[in-house]
Design a protein around this nucleic acid. Structure first.
Lengths: 251, 251
DNA sequence: TTTGCGCCTTCCATCTTCCGGAAGCCCTTC
DNA sequence: GAAGGGCTTCCGGAAGATGGAAGGCGCAAA
């Protein structure tokens, strides 16, 4: 394959895997990574030897323990998720709702963590997954404090997801201004029918908004704002935690 | 470097990172992965381009978002952690203690998840980290149901960690038998002074013990067994969940 | 039993690509 | 202004990657 270095070829094999393709056989890997079968075979072998991939009894491959292990060393995980987790859990325990922690990844909200007891609302998000910025509360919060040019770009590509999704750029811009003023973002059935959400921003060591924490609640509930004080408290506790660490070392 | 394929060299760069070396500069990476600086430089460049690594403002490198993302596709994460998480959270909320989910990784207990509110006991474990099998409750539970030969091997290498660590193979073997009988594992200050722990096994789709769930509690607490019913309930709920899925697809 | 098929594995002659010492750059420190 | 640490670039020689082809294996249909 022209222009791809050896390493890139090996990495493109890993790229063949995603949420909807967690298990692939060799032929599928070769096809999805655009490599001849023999070449894919050789690379896959090496990746398996290194435990980047695992081979299952049925012959399919999946991401291995070693990569999971490595991924836990990423800044996103260690510096954000681990710092936030205790507060998120308390928030979850206090409110009983599904709790989200997300960061902005281009025009998407990337879900870093999702907590929710056995009885919480079922939601579409999953850790490592993404959802649109404009239709979720965490997304709106992240967008409200995003750089102006990125905000403008996001406003020009509003996709309708439910009858209640805000797809008018002017209206969303007004909402974002309101979010900056009140420091709370809301949605109501804009992503999923039956679900409402609230979110507030988390500020990092530098004082800018680096993440958002949100609650998802059934939209029929009347006291939608009841979790807000706890949410604000959690977000500012996480912000304080991030501020106090700056550049800490290992665990 | 003799005998290492290109891919393996690139992977050995990733291997330079671990819990105590989350951020490395180029020189350190080259040294730790045993590669000439120029070679390391080339590989690191490619890994950064692919977002396997990230370069920070101060010039150091760390594991990037892409690997974190990929790791979340591993079976360990999707099939075990995600299935167990809601139950673990409930368990954490009910007991107020630190909750652990671990699997056996050779002679170590590999911590897949750790939950604990802001007020829980500080513990030495971390997700993705390992602790000895013989000095932790989850470890003992995993060891109790391990294959006989591995169990024997583990018994021959008991390291003392506190004055209370059980290092006599005969005594530990008796404890393991007791654990299989009662289906509960205990420790008391065997890993960390001041901490006790309880754990029970989780059975997978095939009916064998694949993981263990445990609680860590301050050892001065008198009602050490008070969390046991909730712990048992959580473990059997997770086991049931795993049994009912067998080979489910995506989220 | 034979044939066909899908999938995996191995082989090896060819040639693309990687290797890494050396030299140069850019800071900071003395 | 010289020394030193760390990073980046270069390029000829050497090494290792490539991938078409052929063979193996298990299964199902004829």
């Amino acid at each position: 394959m022209a222009g791809r270095s050896v390493t890139l070829r090996a990495l493109s094999i890993l790229d063949a895997f995603d949420v909807r393709h967690r298990r692939l056989n060799l032929t599928e890997i070769a096809r999805r990574s655009n490599l001849p079968l023999a070449t894919a075979h050789r690379h896959v072998q090496e990746l398996v030897d290194w435990h980047a991939l695992e081979r299952r009894a049925d012959g399919t491959y999946q991401i291995g323990t070693r990569l999971w292990h490595l991924g836990l060393l990423s800044a996103m995980h260690v510096e954000l998720r681990e710092a936030a987790l205790p507060y998120l859990q308390d928030l979850c325990a206090v409110t009983g709702d599904t709790v989200h922690l997300a960061v902005r990844d281009g025009f998407k909200a990337l879900y870093v963590e999702r907590l929710g007891g056995v009885r919480s609302v079922r939601v579409v998000s999953r850790p490592g997954g993404t959802l649109p910025l404009h239709a979720t509360a965490v997304g709106k919060a992240l967008l409200a404090w995003a750089p102006a040019d990125e905000q403008r770009a996001a406003l020009s590509r509003l996709e309708r997801l439910t009858p209640y999704t805000v797809v008018d750029p002017t209206r969303l811009a007004a909402q974002l201004a309101e979010i900056r003023r009140t420091e709370v973002a809301w949605t109501r059935e804009e992503m999923t029918l039956g679900a409402a959400s609230v979110a507030v921003g988390v500020t990092g060591a530098a004082g800018s908004v680096v993440a958002a924490v949100g609650l998802v609640i059934p939209s029929h509930r009347t006291n939608v704002g009841s979790g807000l004080p706890a949410l604000r408290a959690a977000a500012s506790a996480i912000s304080a935690h991030l501020r106090s660490r700056r550049s800490a070392g290992a665990a």
